[in-house]
Structures are given as C-alpha cells and as structure tokens.
Amino acid sequence: MLLPLQYALVGLVQLGGGREPWPLVVMPGFKATWHEGMPLLSQRVTFAIHRPDSTIQHLPADTVLAGLPYSHHRAMLEAFFRPASLSGTPETERIRHPDAGHWLWKRLQALTGSSPMRVDIVWEALRIDPKTGVLQTQPLDTLTLQRP
C-alpha cells in the first residue's frame, strides 16, 4: 500500500512544479523521446575569467564544479548559476549571494592561481546534427559577477 502511495506523492509534488522528494522508492524514468533526424538541443556553460593582468581565461563548467559528482554538474548550473532571463526566476542566480560569490572566487583562485577581477558565466544554446555531428552555438545570456 505504501509503495503506490509514495509514488502518487511524487506525481503530485512534481505536478505542482516541486522537486522529487527524498527518500522515496522511485527510479529515474528518462521520459524524453526522440524522432529520427531531430537535432539534439542542449546548453553549454563556460566561465570567462577576467584576470588581473587583463587576460581572459575560459574554464568549462565541469572544471569549476569538479570534486562534486559529474551527474550533479548540469543540475547545479541550472539551479544556482542560471540567469533569471533564462529560468524566469532570480532564484537560479544564487551564485550572486555573498557566500556563493566567496566560494566561487576561492575556487577560481585555486584553479587559475590568481584572484579574478570579474567572471562572466556564459550560457550558449547548442544544436547538434546527429547525422554529421556538426555543432551550432548561439549565445543566450551571461551572468556577470564582480570581485566580492
């Protein structure tokens, strides 16, 4: 009895736009389907780091978030580093919070060896033709952070 009930609870919570509860006995569904020839759409996040010597260093998001499980990277980027213009809510710009900014600067300092002056978190749309592997990119929006 409990198993179907808790499964129904997941459905209800997610129907209301909420996140999946934990802990519950459910497995991922990977619901999405795909039609032959359809392009693959995704988004890419790059950190453009403006160093004190005026050079710009580009770091992939996976490098910045290394240390945390790889499967978490995409979800964390969407939840904390995503411009409100793309998500529709400033809740996804948590990286602007002072504690998050300090964490990012500490992390970037460890990665680049210097404290950046500014960081641009660049979001791009990706469109890949699965037949040819040709990749098209289109800039979406950028979240700019100044040194805290």
Binding site: Y7, P28, G29, F30, K31, A32, W34, L126, I128, G133
Partner: peptide
C-alpha cells in the same frame, strides 16, 4: 516506476527512438 514513466512518455511509439535519442545526447552533448 522507471518503466511506467517511459510508457507514459511514448517510448513504445514506433515513430520515436527514445533510447537512441538519449544515447546520442550522451555521445554528442
């Protein structure tokens, strides 16, 4: 629960190739 979600998502529709779509995404993206 994993299979039921797929069932609702249209995995059995012969015009779609869901597994391949996920595979291509893992491969290219």
């Amino acid at each position: 629960t994993a299979g039921f979600t797929k069932l609702l998502g249209g995995w059995l529709d012969p015009t779609t190739h869901a597994a391949r779509g996920h595979w291509l995404k893992q491969y290219f993206v």
